[in-house]
Design a protein around this nucleic acid. Structure first.
Lengths: 344, 344
DNA sequence: GTGAAAGCGCTAACAC
DNA sequence: GTGTTAGCGCTTTCAC
């Protein structure tokens, strides 16, 4: 069990150093480093050897200064602690690696006025070739956020203005299917545990839920507003228990669904016997909740992949082609939903 | 609902452009940009105005080339999909933002030979001022991974060699407490669901579990080897049910514990009535599992904070001070553990 | 196939 | 308090 090894420390030999050792011009070293073809085989070998000897390491800054390309893409995100953001970032990172780019994350701690623009500006100071903004933004601040450059930008948020390239999951259809599923099972109405009011994803899901009810002539009951956390779901679950008249709940994410189920269990209610629950996200754990959770699956990997694809196209062609790509969701029916007792 | 706004696109005015408009030297512009004090108030105002007029944006590459500092720290990670890695990255990102640094993530897709070194080398090409390596590495490859520069490095992995600055949670104590808790409850022995063999965290936890049993004169039963996923926990849970003689299980993470509990439920076993379960991690969701999971809490936020703190010190002082910092864990007792029936 | 010269945008060092 | 000079390490251009 050796652990890591650490060879002789040497700092940044330059092309000039290599050139001296190999007895060529630094230009030739550059050609070898960039795998250009017009270098004699013997010369190339000599240069390669010299590189090894002096411990050459390319200097990104110099290269970037010269070429104007950083081979890095920026990701602006408000939190990594939600399942969706984490998954999306993971996918973006993987997709970026495929095209030989790194990912620079800037996490905006508290999306209050000023902070956002400031942090964004900092990132946009050309240390990256393009930016993905994963929005879970507060309504108030959005109007303030301006994108100060002509840098390629992709926004993960189906509510960004028309000037943007947008990638998102099809939240509307997902929420509709979830609600319809419960209604089709025979529930008279469906209650909703939403995400925070400031979140556009939350808004979308809530709107779609309400619309689905309305279309069937059902007046949507009041919304329980959570904050995505298991804790908020638990707290709301207790309120729902206290009401006593709820048979079907659609939670805007799996974590709140989980919290609510815990409150139901504690109150001695059976899921789905006494009350049906649907989530949104389809976390890895959701299939192992008790009972296994019926939920709306989101394909975050695809979202990440499409972000990078769009971004790279904009970067390479230097064109800006606004447009909206919606990644389909699908309802995964498991064991947390059933017909209401009255209908059974 | 306006969405984002996008002002007139303009690309990269330089300091020279600003200088021309403001009627000063570009050096003065630099001074203003860097908030040096020795600039006349009126001049500063003029420069600021000119910056706005021409749409000045600093060029990171040029600055980095000149100063040798990137204001970015690199994070090498094998996956973002585990709870711990994600949390740690989140904390690192937050801590880095505090000291005005961005975080460049490089995700090594498949830690096979060559890939690791290659990816590491790519990152280490001086686009960052220091590196955090979050290790969940395969044994085989570790020997191959060398750190080719004298760049500041912090490793999150209590098994890195002595030449490194190491930050990690105290896995040994955590696993010991978990095992002892079960034993103290009266269980005759404790079975273990481990993480993948290639993982050092998994190895630590398994070793500590075995040692705790041995110290009490108990021969450790065979280990069930999982892969951190809920699915593997579920699969192993079914094996455990089939054995019929297990009363206490310590899983190396919460997700596997969750999967196992699902298998137990399906088999009609009561947790903790028939079988007690302890996890490791203390995910946000764990308190809402059914039953709420007894588990070992890890303070990932602290780990991330310490990583950045150590790294910044090394960067700023240009010294390398190897050392090992262990962040304490603590056992959180909830409802998934109880005395065995025989003892009750 | 190879080299010499120029310059990307910035800041450190020194002049005034 | 401000300007001038030089050069970070690289690549582009143009010679040869």
């Amino acid at each position: 069990m050796t652990g890591l090894s650490r060879p002789e420390a040497r700092r940044g030999a330059s092309m000039a150093d290599v050139a001296k050792v190999a007895g060529v011009s630094s230009q030739t070293v550059s050609r070898v480093a960039n795998e250009k073809t017009n270098v004699d085989h013997a010369t190339r070998e000599r240069v390669l050897e010299a590189m090894k000897e002096v411990g050459y390491q390319p200097n990104h800054a110099a290269r970037a200064l010269r070429t104007g390309r950083f081979k890095s893409i920026g990701v602006i995100v408000f939190t990594l602690s939600t399942f969706g953001n984490m998954k999306t970032l993971d996918a973006i990172t993987a997709a970026a690696a495929e095209v030989d780019h790194t990912v620079t994350v800037i996490r905006i701690p508290d999306p209050t006025r000023g902070t956002v623009s400031g942090a964004y500006r900092r990132l946009s100071e050309q240390a990256v070739d393009g930016v993905v903004i994963i929005f879970e933004a507060h309504l108030l601040d959005r109007a303030e956020i301006t994108l100060p450059t002509d840098q390629p930008v992709v926004v993960v948020d189906s509510n960004a203005g028309d000037g943007f390239t947008v990638v998102d999951t099809d939240q509307t259809t997902g929420a509709r299917e979830a609600t319809a599923h419960l209604l089709d099972l025979g529930h008279e109405t469906v209650w909703h545990i939403s995400g925070p009011e400031a979140s556009f994803s939350a808004l979308h899901r809530a709107q779609s839920w309400a619309a689905t009810l309305s279309e069937r002539g059902i007046t949507p009951p009041p919304v329980f507003v959570g904050d995505w956390t298991t804790d908020s779901g638990y707290r709301i679950g207790k309120e729902i228990v206290a009401r006593g008249d709820v048979t079907a709940v659609f939670a805007a994410n799996d974590q709140m669904a989980l919290g609510a189920m815990t409150a139901f269990h504690e109150a001695g209610l059976q899921v789905p016997g006494d009350i049906s629950v649907v989530g949104f996200d389809d976390m890895e754990e959701s299939k192992a909740f008790w009972p296994p959770l019926t939920t709306v699956h989101q394909d975050f990997t695809e979202v990440g992949r499409l972000c990078i694809q769009s971004l790279m196209r904009e970067i390479e062609t230097r064109t800006h082609t606004p447009g909206r790509t919606l990644v389909p969701t699908r309802l995964v029916v498991r064991d947390s939903t059933a017909a209401p007792k009255s209908a059974a």
